[in-house]
Amino acid sequence: MKKPIVIMSFVLALGAGTITAQQMNKGGEVPVAVKNAFKKDFPQVKKVKWDDEHGTYEAEFKLNGKETSATYNPKGMKEETETSLKISELPKNIISYVAAKKYGKIKEAAKIVKTDGSVIYEAEVKSGDLLFDHNGNFQKLVVEKD
């Protein structure tokens, strides 16, 4: 009778370990390499919130009074930095484009800088995120799926 109890206990212990591992992969600890890279890139930032973004890690923080985020891969390589903008800080041709195409009011705006130095502007409207190149030329509409 003791044998089945021991086996059952062992199986339950393994199952509990698997759940813990899955939980770690779905939003557990931020890798040390990522935290170290962030500290090197933004040494002045003391308060940061981390999110697991489908295999990458996003740090959300304030920098120079602006909402900012930086995305890193699991090895600690920065992929992009996104900084919020006032809508009036968007290039004028973006604001004109949104009005001419009747996308409605711009809710939020941001400037995204990729690791290669390329710049993308983002204008959030009701239907999704409008992306523009560094010159303010329309690139695409990204619709978030729930």
Rank of each mutant, 00 (worst) to 15 (best):
D41A: 13
E53W: 00
G136Y: 04
F42L: 04
T20Q: 11
N135D: 14
T83A: 07
G128Q: 04
I94A: 09
K66L: 09
A109W: 03
V32T: 13
A123F: 01
V30H: 00
P91F: 06
E124C: 11
T71C: 07
E108H: 14
S9K: 10
E29D: 14
K47E: 06
L12P: 02
W50C: 00
F138D: 14
V142D: 08
K62I: 07
E144W: 04
I5L: 15
G17R: 09
E122A: 11
P4Q: 07
T56V: 15
P31W: 03
K35T: 14
N73H: 07
E58M: 00
A16H: 06
K35N: 15
T68N: 01
S96N: 14
K114N: 15
P74T: 11
P74L: 08
E82L: 01
S96T: 15
S84C: 05
K62V: 05
K26Y: 08
K75T: 13
K26S: 15
E122G: 09
G65R: 00
V45P: 04
H134A: 15
S127K: 13
I106W: 09
M1P: 10
A70W: 01
V48G: 03
A59P: 03
D51A: 03
A99R: 09
I120V: 15
H134C: 11
T68D: 00
I112S: 12
N73Q: 04
L130D: 11
F10S: 09
P91S: 09
Q44H: 08
Y72V: 04
I112Y: 00
K126H: 11
E124S: 06
V125W: 04
K92R: 11
K107C: 11
S84V: 05
A99N: 10
V11G: 13
S84T: 03
G76Q: 07
N73P: 12
S88H: 04
G117Q: 01
K62H: 12
K114W: 12
Q23M: 13
A123Y: 00
E80Y: 07
Y57R: 05
E108G: 05
E80P: 11
V98S: 12
F38A: 02
P74N: 10
K62F: 12
D146G: 04
V48D: 02
Y72K: 03
F138V: 15
E67T: 02
H54Y: 15
N137E: 05
A59F: 02
T68E: 06
F138A: 12
K2P: 05
K92Q: 15
K49Y: 02
K86S: 07
G17F: 01
S84W: 01
E124N: 07
V11Q: 06
P74C: 04
L14M: 15
N36D: 14
E79H: 04
V119Y: 13
K126S: 14
V142R: 06
G117P: 05
H54E: 13
K78Q: 14
L130C: 14
D146I: 05
F132C: 07
Y97N: 11
D133S: 08
P43R: 03
D129N: 07
S96Q: 13
W50K: 00
F132T: 12
G28F: 12
S88K: 13
V6R: 03
P4V: 08
T68R: 00
A16E: 10
N25W: 11
K140T: 10
A110I: 02
V142P: 08
G76I: 06
N64G: 09
P74D: 05
K46Q: 12
K66D: 00
Q44A: 13
K140M: 13
